[in-house]
Write a protein that binds this DNA or RNA. Structure first.
Lengths: 204, 204
DNA sequence: TTTGCTTTTGACATTTTTGTCAAATAGGAA
DNA sequence: TTCCTATTTGACAAAAATGTCAAAAGCAAA
């Protein structure tokens, strides 16, 4: 039997993954170091060897989640793409990454409540919000859409983002397993592309 | 100066309101009995006089929130109403109640993660989920809609429910105050009614 | 005022969770 | 093997939070 000697980095990665799982599920206050240690398959005391205390560990995990969320959001969208195309590209990119980690979405939503200052950075550093909002406004000016850009924008965010944040709720409502849910979300990607097309057509 | 003697019920109500505030903000694990007592303006020990322990208090608060959520959801919808009308009625009823307490929505979403068994009751006791889902299915059979009932259903839930759950996120994204948000949500009600009409038209 | 009840309070006990430390262990290099 | 360092472990300390209890205080009726 081969024992792979783990380097410090590897162990840290295992711990972070375990911590991530527990933190996402129970939040900072609800997470127990013992549970994280068990999940990581190490002694609780060892946690302190790698991360001085709970707060440090949380910060380490959090900043990674933070990065991961950023990666979901395509930062370069062609300036002159049609709005419809922008939305479709965005959706595809978001789904591609989010399906792997739907837990992050609810976490994110909560962080906007508990740490709004941090979240502001996420938005500010990333002008995507303004970009899409403005794209909606331009589209309205061009006569492709009627009404209010903000409402359209929120609708778009809702139909893409919410089903990830509400993963557990949806599972209960549709009375389906985790696999069913993932399956369902895969097909939702196509559904949303269709939804976007219809959204524009219905305005004509 | 008049001292109003408080009856037990009144004191309980004060405590529940204080507890509600703290629980909604910090969750069960994050809430401190001391903070709740301070918020209620009583000694911590008195909490135990009214509610044996933290869990009991949480249950009391929770079951009220529970009831409040239920009230948002119209339980009697005419069986033979057109789907379009069902959705519009549902939306109006939901908005009417939710605008007052948008905090509950995110709380609810979290509870589906942390206490799925409890949430199952909320859904089971209330056959509204199945009712609307089936209404979508019937509508598809009648040819009013194409595609998958579950997708339509989730879209509908998303555009109505999500903007409440994401209150803080939306405020940051639209860079607006709480008042602006409320204003915005009021106008969203009308927007959604229009959205529903278009949703059906676009399928023809 | 006395009595009998409800409510509040503070001191203390218990439990739970986190943090510290020194000793033990492992594993590679000399 | 021996030495050195990195890591793990278990015993313990400390802190944080909750729970208990009996005594005190409040209040209304007799």
């Amino acid at each position: 039997m081969i024992l792979t000697t783990q380097t410090r980095k590897e162990t840290e990665a295992i711990i972070k993954q375990a911590a991530r799982k527990v933190f996402l599920q129970k939040g900072l206050a609800g997470a127990r170091l013992q549970e994280i240690a068990d999940e990581a398959g190490i002694g609780r005391t060892s946690l302190h060897y790698y991360y001085k205390n709970k707060e440090m560990l949380f910060n380490a995990v959090f900043s990674e989640n933070f990065q991961e969320i950023k990666k979901r959001i395509p930062y370069q969208l062609e300036e002159n793409l049609a709005l419809k195309e922008i939305l479709i590209q965005f959706t595809k990119e978001y789904f591609r990454n989010a399906i792997k980690n739907p837990d992050l979405d609810l976490f994110l939503l909560n962080e906007f409540c508990s740490h709004p200052e941090l979240m502001l950075n996420l938005i500010k550093g990333h002008e995507i919000t303004q970009f899409i909002l403005q794209a909606f406004e331009k589209s309205i000016q061009k006569g492709e859409l009627k009404g209010n850009a903000q409402q359209h924008f929120i609708t778009f965010i809702s139909v893409t983002f919410f089903p990830f944040a509400a993963k557990n709720m949806i599972q209960q409502m549709l009375q389906c397993s985790e696999n069913d849910y993932i399956q369902y979300m895969h097909s939702r990607e196509d559904y949303i592309v269709g939804f976007i097309h219809q959204y524009f057509n219905s305005q004509l």
